[in-house]
Design a protein around this nucleic acid. Structure first.
Lengths: 252, 252
DNA sequence: TTGCTCCTCACGTCACGTGAGGTGGC
DNA sequence: TTGCTCCTCACGTCACGTGAGGTGGC
């Protein structure tokens, strides 16, 4: 009597050389994955079942399942399959590569938490204000400039005011919505100790520069720097720190 | 002299009927989106520029930009484009549909935050323990059962022990890793007041049932119910509440 | 004339979902 | 023989990314 490898319990004869195996449907139930996902992992070589029946049905061994559980744990942590592959095929198997993958993922998750919390604030604000409109901030900004003499000459203020008029929605959104948000995010990163060389900070700095260019227009005249100086004076020492932090990000 | 609609400043002649318009590259810089993303929004009809030059170049009006800013704000909140489309084309435009979309997204974000925080705990644990292995819990469970007489007969314990031996990694992972996690998640949902009818709770209950089936095997004998009873006795009144909560989820 | 911007296809990405049509095993 | 499970294509999803090859405007 030949061992029947395709039985619903797998081959489990005592004294036999072959170990207990699981069919793909059993594996799906055990892991909560779909059959299609297991096919996918097989296709890309992530988890290839060690055996097949004569008719081609996949049979997973306990060792296969151990690998699979590790993969699902990492997947549920949001680690992409390519990175999981790297961690699994690394020489020591539980050494530095895995540690690096976990640390990277940990940083990303912590950033996700902060981003989601900011998102939550924004959604609450949008709900209270009844929408996602950007308001008409630039009039406020111009007023503020007039009230604080010594930074900009009346001519410069008029020129900026005209420029903002030309820019319309683009200007008011940049100054009133996006820049405050970007500066807020940068401030958070600085406070929690994210190094200025981190790509996240770099992205914020780059976007701020792009917006500054949009606002400056084709012929810059140095007004922008004086506006920045005004903000630093208004915002206190922490604003000065933030400006230095962003400058460092730009050169790293 | 015909108005030149394709100039880099758009048509902005004083006295002209036509308003200021923006070319696609200017819009990309203003919003931080890519040109390709704007093409995509045009293709699917999400934000279609109101004008084109004679040669086919897209021209965005201030009104187009206002819509676009609203879209980007919602996209950055993680709202899918289809839902954004629903909110934008709703009759009142700032009425119930938008409110619903925001509320739904708010719930999802709050769930994301909790999930990410749990993820963080798991990653920290994995880092401390040096990996994602599932350990050998079922021996502990069996021991616990022997120490608490009155719930299961020695024969039942032996049968369960044999069954766990057959299940191997599948059993120990289900009992030692996934079920504790699922019960923990369900407990969190219950404590924060998520209604039992919520699909999230339903998914947890369904997955628990599927795991129970995997553990029970082909011939159930009522042992499972007595094991549950044991857990309720061990866990105190909150465990009883949790069991009722999950039962409600299953019938909703 | 030279760059830079813009155009329209059209295929690629990521981790599978979803049938289509057929075979295997109790 | 009837169900249920399994098999292999193969196209679809989502929000764009990434060239390919060509035109437009200062």
């Amino acid at each position: 009597m030949a061992p029947d490898e395709g039985s619903s319990q797998g081959s489990w004869q005592s004294g036999s050389q072959s170990e207990r195996t699981w069919r793909i449907g059993e594996v799906a139930a055990a892991t909560g994955l779909t059959v299609r996902a297991l096919h996918h992992y097989d296709e890309i070589g992530m988890v290839v079942p060690s055996e097949r029946t004569a008719s081609g049905h996949r049979l997973y061994t306990a060792r296969d399942l151990t690998v699979l559980y590790r993969v699902t744990a990492m997947r549920q942590s949001g680690i992409p399959l390519t990175a999981i592959g790297d961690a699994l095929t690394s020489p020591t198997d539980s050494g530095d590569v895995l540690r690096d993958v976990i640390d990277q993922q940990l940083e990303q998750v912590e950033r996700q938490i902060r981003a989601a919390e900011r998102l939550r604030e924004r959604l609450l604000a949008a709900r209270d204000e009844g929408g996602f409109d950007s308001g008409d901030w630039y009039a406020e900004i111009i007023k503020l400039m007039r009230q604080l003499p010594g930074h900009l000459s009346p001519e410069e203020i008029d020129r900026m005011s005209r420029r903002m008029g030309e820019l319309g929605v683009v200007g008011s959104h940049a100054v009133g919505v996006e820049m405050p948000r970007l500066y807020g995010e940068a401030m958070t990163e600085m406070r929690i100790g994210t190094p200025a060389s981190d790509p996240v900070v770099r992205r914020i700095a780059d976007r701020l520069d792009q917006l500054a260019e949009v606002l400056r227009g084709p012929e810059p005249d140095g007004t922008g720097d004086r506006v920045r100086g005004m903000w630093v004076d208004l915002g206190g020492p922490e604003w000065g720190e933030l400006v230095a932090y962003l400058d460092e990000a730009r050169t790293s």
